[in-house]
C-alpha cells in the first residue's frame, strides 16, 4: 500500500540535493518511487520504471563520457584555431591577387606605347589574368561557408557542454548569423552541380 507521507519527504530531500534539474535526479526519483511503493507495482509498472532508471543511467554515463572528451577544448582552441587559419588563407590569397593585378595594370598601362599585334597580345594576356584572378572571390566565399559551418558546430558544442558540463561554464561567444529567411544565400556550388552561364542564359531567355 502506497504511503503518501513518505513520497513527498523523499522528493523534497532530492530537491535539496538537486536544486536545478539534472539527469541524475531522474534515477534517484525512480528509486525513491520504487522504494516507497513497496510491492504495490504491477510487473509491467516495475518493468517500465526499471527501464526509466536504466535510461537515466545511460544519460548519466553519456554525460560522463562527454565530459571526458573535454568537448569544451573544441570551442576553446580547435575551432578558433581552424577559423584563424582559414581567415589567413583568405587574407594571403587577397594579398597575392592584388600583387598580380598590380602587375597586370602596369602591363595595361604600357598598351598605348605598343602598336599592332604587340598591343593586342598584351591586352589578351592581361585579360586572361584578370579572369583567372576571380578565383580569389570564389575561394573566399567557399572558405566563408566553411567558417560558418565551424561556427555552427561551435554553438552546438557549447550547448552540449552547458547541459552536461560540470557547474557553470563559459559559453561560446554569440556569433552573428546572417539571416537568410528565403534560403537564397548559398554561395558557389560544387562544380559538378553548378549551373553554367549557358544554363543561366537559357533560363533567363525562358522568361521572354
Amino acid at each position: 500500500m502506497l504511503d503518501p507521507a513518505q513520497l513527498p519527504q523523499r522528493l523534497a530531500a532530492l530537491r535539496e540535493n538537486y536544486p536545478a534539474s539534472n539527469p541524475d535526479m531522474v534515477a534517484d526519483v525512480v528509486r525513491a518511487i520504487l522504494g516507497t511503493m513497496r510491492g504495490d507495482l504491477t510487473a509491467q509498472d516495475a518493468s517500465l520504471l526499471a527501464e526509466v532508471e536504466e535510461l537515466a543511467h545511460t544519460v548519466a554515463t553519456a554525460r560522463a563520457e562527454i565530459a571526458a572528451l573535454q568537448a569544451d577544448d573544441i570551442n576553446a582552441s580547435h575551432i578558433p584555431s581552424a577559423t584563424d587559419e582559414l581567415d589567413a588563407i583568405v587574407e594571403h590569397t587577397a594579398e597575392a591577387t592584388n600583387i598580380i593585378l598590380e602587375c597586370c595594370e602596369t602591363l595595361d598601362a604600357l598598351g598605348p606605347t605598343l602598336t599592332g599585334e604587340a598591343a593586342q597580345a598584351v591586352q589578351d594576356v592581361t585579360t586572361r589574368v584578370y579572369e583567372a584572378c576571380g578565383f580569389q572571390d570564389i575561394t573566399g566565399q567557399r572558405i566563408t561557408k566553411v567558417v560558418a559551418t565551424l561556427q555552427a558546430i561551435e554553438r552546438k558544442v557549447a550547448q552540449i557542454v552547458e547541459v552536461f558540463g560540470r557547474g557553470a561554464r563559459e559559453t561560446a561567444p554569440s556569433v552573428a548569423v546572417t539571416e537568410d529567411a528565403d534560403g537564397l544565400l548559398n554561395g558557389p556550388q560544387m562544380p559538378a552541380s553548378a549551373m553554367g552561364q549557358s544554363d543561366i542564359d537559357a533560363l533567363l531567355a525562358s522568361f521572354d
Binding site: D137, L184, G187, Q189, M195, Q197, I200, L203, L204, F207
Partner: peptide, 20 residues
C-alpha cells in the same frame, strides 16, 4: 557565384537586366 535556379528566378522576378 549564386547559381541555383531559384536565384536566377528570384533575380528575374525582381527585375534584373542580366545575370552573370
Amino acid at each position: 557565384a549564386e547559381s541555383k535556379t531559384e536565384n536566377v528566378v528570384a533575380a528575374k522576378q525582381a527585375g534584373v537586366s542580366n545575370y552573370i
